[in-house]
Design a binder for these strands. Structure first.
Length: 286
DNA sequence: CGCAGGACAGAGTAATTCAG
DNA sequence: CTGAATTACTCTGTCCTGCG
């Protein structure tokens, strides 16, 4: 695999640093056009002559330079938060690789679906750096603890968390969540993989321990009630369940990232004279 | 069971391309 | 070059989803 090393230059640059949709007036199509013309990184864009750029990009050059400088600046400081606002929602997954081991997989259990009748019972988080932390109501679950947890993250990964977990935490614990949130539900929906977390795990062949295979969301509510009535095992089971959720989200996120990258970026890779891919159709009419 | 917000469709506007 | 046709982007409004 001698030659692969040279080509690997391309894959070292994360998708986020190939992303032009953070720029004004640049959407999906314009970004693809840039990629196909061999302008694949931010520095490519800065160095490209006007003759290689679509008109709408030429005309916005000054604004784009400011926007790129801003993006570089935030990235250098590990501030991924602004990208959550700059990127169209469907592309927020591109932040994932940038956050490295500060990606936090987050999942909460509650006593029901609606607030404020329901209350959070377990807040579970998993990171490569810290492992799994489970905050339990009545023990170590507090606004402070939740805020500390979130402040450590450069990026959250949740399942339906944009609509459930994160707004819930913001309301019940009055925390501010100033980090991007990659919601795997939407990432997978984009890959035509639909269903709940457990269903998707199954579809992808990920197995959780069989002793909690049958635990669903509503079961988590009942487990908490049993624990409140004095059943110690019920809490153990609930915690095992929550931990499985946050731990399993990591491979899910990896799969989603790789597949989305393959779907979104790879088909628009520029023709590389060193890597003659015979199957790239040449259909450029201009 | 309630909900925020994502997908999708349609309309309106701006930019780009193309024929002549 | 010009005007028309095409393409891209943005905004608004509906519908629908999976969370415990």
């Amino acid at each position: 695999m001698g030659g692969a090393l040279l080509q690997a230059t391309g894959s070292v640059t994360s998708v986020l640093r190939r992303t032009f949709q953070i720029l004004s007036g640049v959407g999906e199509k314009t970004e693809q056009k840039l990629w196909q013309r061999g302008i694949t990184t931010w520095s490519d864009l800065r160095e490209a002559g006007d003759d290689r750029l679509p008109g709408r990009v030429q005309r916005r050059r000054e604004a784009h330079e400011d926007q790129l400088a801003m993006a570089e600046h935030h990235l250098a400081d590990d501030h991924t938060a602004p990208f959550d606002r700059w990127l169209p929602d469907r592309e927020i997954w591109r932040i994932l690789q940038e956050a490295g081991d500060r990606v936090m997989y987050l999942d909460i259990e509650t006593t029901g679906l609606s607030y404020p009748e329901g209350r959070a019972t377990v807040v579970g988080a998993h990171t490569d750096a810290e492992g799994t932390q489970l905050l339990v109501r009545g023990q170590d679950l507090s606004s402070r603890a939740v805020q500390d947890l979130i402040d450590d993250a450069a990026c959250l990964v949740t399942f339906n968390g944009r609509r459930f977990d994160v707004p819930w935490l913001e309301r019940e614990f009055d925390v501010s969540v100033d980090v991007p949130n990659v919601d795997l539900m939407y990432a997978f929906r984009r890959l035509d993989i639909t269903g709940g977390l457990k269903s998707i795990e199954k579809q992808l062949g990920l197995d959780r321990g069989e002793e909690i295979d049958d635990v669903g969301g509503y079961e988590a509510v009942k487990l908490w009630r049993r624990w409140e009535r004095g059943n110690h095992d019920a809490l153990e089971r609930l915690l095992t369940y929550n931990e499985a959720d946050v731990v399993n989200m990591q491979p899910l996120a990896d799969i989603a990232y790789e597949r989305l990258k393959a779907e979104v970026y790879d088909p628009h890779e520029p023709d590389d004279p060193q890597a003659q891919q015979a199957e790239i159709p040449v259909e450029d009419a201009g």
